[in-house]
Design a protein around this nucleic acid. Sequence first.
DNA 1: AGCCAGGCTACCG
DNA 2: CGGTAGCATGGC
Length: 216
Amino acid sequence: MEGTPQKLQIIYRALVAKYGHQGWWPISSLEIAGAKKGYHPQDYDYPKSEQQKFEICIGAILAQSTKWDGAKKALENLQGLKASDPASLLSLPEEKLKEAIRPAGYFNQKARKIRDFCTFYSTLQGRAPARDELLNIWGVGPETADSILLYAYKTPTFVIDAYTKRLLIRLGMASESSTYDEMKSLFEKNLEQKYEIYQEFHALIVEDGKRNSKQK
DNA sequence: AGCCAGGCTACCG
DNA sequence: CGGTAGCATGGC
């Protein structure tokens, strides 16, 4: 794979040129402060607080197979209930939790996922989770685990989602049968292993994917 | 009015 | 293993 590194770097630069720096992961407190949609372009220091870090984790679960707006509304509802930390979430009655996260869809499953995640998160005592630990949580698969590691913990692990797979197939760099880990290592082996680049690249791919699916 | 979102689990052969 | 139904809401 001689041309692969250059290919990915060229795509990356082209996407930055086309859409500009994205500033993922969106953070609700920034939106309140006036940042566009809660994004923070070219500031890679987020999350800057424990609360923001936790919000990214829950947001990653809520955003599974759903539009971000729905996940965002769910996060806002939880904040309205003052349930933005593991202990508060765990003490929330089951029905209250489901009602709050309803806009994110799959609320029965996601309620369990959030509860299980909170239980795990509480055992961390502030340390970063290992990827395998995340994957052992019910409801956390590879994309959610990598999103949490990349955006909440600044770990240089690449996130593969449906848009990424479509892009790679379109570029002839993957096939329908390519596995998650194959595609993930394609990026990780051919790019500088910097979390800033991984964060930006994934966000750009999603932006590109959304626009392409809209116009067609 | 259907289709599909920034997936994952369970269960099938 | 690979393939797929089921999960649910909301916007277009």
